[in-house]
Amino acid sequence: MPRSAPLPDDPVIEVRGLRMTYGSTEVLAGVDLTVAPGEVVCLLGPNGAGKTTTIEVLEGFRLRSGGDVRVLGVDPAEGGDDWRARVGVVLQSWRDHARWTPRRLLTQLGGYYEPYSTPQRPRPYPVEDLLETVGLTDAADRRIVTLSGGMRRRLDVAVGIIGRPDLLFLDEPTAGFDPQARRDFHDLVHRLSDLEGTSILLTTHDLAEAERLADRILILAGGRIVADGSADELTRRVAGSSEVRWSIGGERFVHATADPTPFVRRLFEQHGDAVADLEVHRASLEDTYIAMVGRQGAGAEAPRPLAGSVR
């Protein structure tokens, strides 16, 4: 099938100045983001920051107000069926196909990818393997209406990846998962990205999840990307990124510092063995997140020049 395949090193997603306005409300005020092939990127942000809107624009489900968007080298607003076949979307459905069974549904929906099979990337994924992968083999012939919430979500994931997508979108994939289901899901994402080379863009509220899954984290706040980097890079960016706690003679102390080692050495020099309950905490991603999102919130309310000086 002739298609203008982008070069292997071209970004799978490239967004410049994405804007979205509803009436007079500006939800996205110029989002820039890039996802490289095989990368797992996590979009974090408070409620209403525009995560879902961003993802829906990239999925081709929503028309943007402005900006330049390329997904697999194509503008998603004009993405045809060839493009669709290479993009996987995990949807948050809730009661569809109640009378179907997972096996029947996956067979039916997978069928649409048959014409897009290539020797390098046979499509669709064999249904039995997929059921095994998402842990639904035992429930394969149960009516979908009888599945638990976690099983349904895993079925949603299975539907999203059945076409062996080059790029997968996941919008809050683990909302409502119990810890075990969450762990299983994380393993699945790792396998997809390692074995299949699938590029993945996901949104989540769960910072631990972002830290575990993502090669790179983007924080979306106030309609812009306010931070972009690995979890490590982001935590390092927050000033006073470590916290030292100790007690002397039953009195407790806390000190925030960018460089804990010399501080602790001086502490011992001064107080020796009197230092008790010593703890050194690196700033967590959560601290970073709160700092970055909080800064954005303050900036949004204050006049522009002031917001600049805060940064």
Partner: peptide, 20 residues
């Protein structure tokens, strides 16, 4: 109903899904 429960959206996400 299938507009609201996501059946249709699933097909929109498939190549030639709406025709099917």
């Amino acid at each position: 109903m299938e507009r609201e429960d996501g059946t249709l959206l699933r097909h929109k996400a498939l190549p030639h899904g709406m025709q099917g």
